[in-house]
């Protein structure tokens, strides 16, 4: 469905990745490992009605209806770069509201240091969660430090290109943290928990040598098996003359977020 959005100052001046590519080239292992699987196999998924349970170290825990939240908070349009840990990237016009808006609503307690997220588990609607061969342990989980979660760039997206999110992109609500690798952007969120312990995140649990908790985009820290110095911009060129872009520290958002990591060794906290 079409969304009514307001313009946001968070807009990068780069050519948008065509919507066809944004909606057919996805990593969403709940629907399968192939990039085309989510678009092909997400048809049975029912994103509405949907609620998000917010609990843990908050004064006002609750279960919130996503459609009510979409009426309560203005839906902004934000054009973000998206950098996958696999060294490809897109430029996507997201529609959503700041994660901080929802956090404010539940009044985090002083002891809350982290925010943990959880994706829905529905094997009957998500073929990647069913059957003998399953790629990851479900539910997919992610986490942010409190200051990262409250950063104005951290977005709960409910749409892209002015329409509600397609199933394959994480309907009805997903996280977008543009200075981090794409896998931090957990999809189809059903639960958000505030905690004083650093939460587990699925990829770190799966392969701690290769994926960390922070996962900030960093051209200077290679993935152990491939370089992160450059990226292929999806949809920008065809078969020939595919151009590589240099990858920017914090995916080009260093001015906004670098101070969050003052004094931290980003080679250790990768």
């Amino acid at each position: 469905a079409a969304l009514t959005t307001v313009r946001s100052k968070y807009t990068v001046d780069e050519k948008l990745t065509p919507i066809k590519d944004v909606t057919t080239y996805n990593n969403f292992y709940e629907f399968g490992l192939d990039k085309g699987d989510p678009a092909a196999l997400a048809g049975k998924f029912k994103p509405l009605p949907w609620t998000i349970k917010v609990d843990g170290m908050v004064n006002k825990p609750g279960t919130f209806d996503i459609e009510a939240l979409m009426k309560e908070f203005p839906i902004e349009e934000r054009v973000y770069r998206m950098r996958c840990v696999e060294a490809w990237s897109m430029v996507i016009p997201w529609n959503g509201f700041p994660l901080a808006s929802l956090l404010d609503k539940v009044e985090p307690q002083g002891s809350a240091k982290y925010v943990a997220f959880e994706t829905v588990v529905r094997p009957e609607e998500m073929p990647g969660q069913a059957g003998l061969f399953q790629s990851l342990n479900w539910p997919y989980v992610e986490g942010l430090r409190m200051d990262e979660a409250r950063h104005p760039l951290a977005l709960l997206a409910v749409g892209l290109y002015g329409e509600t999110l397609p199933n394959q992109n994480g309907a009805p609500v997903r996280l977008v943290v543009p200075w981090k690798y794409g896998f931090k952007g957990i999809k189809s969120i059903v639960r958000i928990t505030l905690t004083d312990q650093q939460p587990k995140n699925t990829w770190q649990v799966t392969n701690p040598q290769e994926y960390g908790f922070y996962a900030n985009v960093n051209p200077a820290v290679d993935h152990p098996r491939w370089s992160q110095a450059t990226e292929r911009r999806i949809g920008e060129s065809g078969f020939f003359g595919a151009s590589r872009h240099p990858t920017l520290p914090f995916n080009g958002y260093a001015d906004e977020v670098a101070s969050l990591y003052d004094g931290m060794d980003l080679r250790v906290n990768f």
Partner: peptide
């Protein structure tokens, strides 16, 4: 397929 732009969003990688 690649030369006629029918190999998806990331044709080079797919090929």
């Amino acid at each position: 397929l690649g030369a006629t732009d029918q190999l998806g969003a990331d044709p080079v990688k797919t090929f």
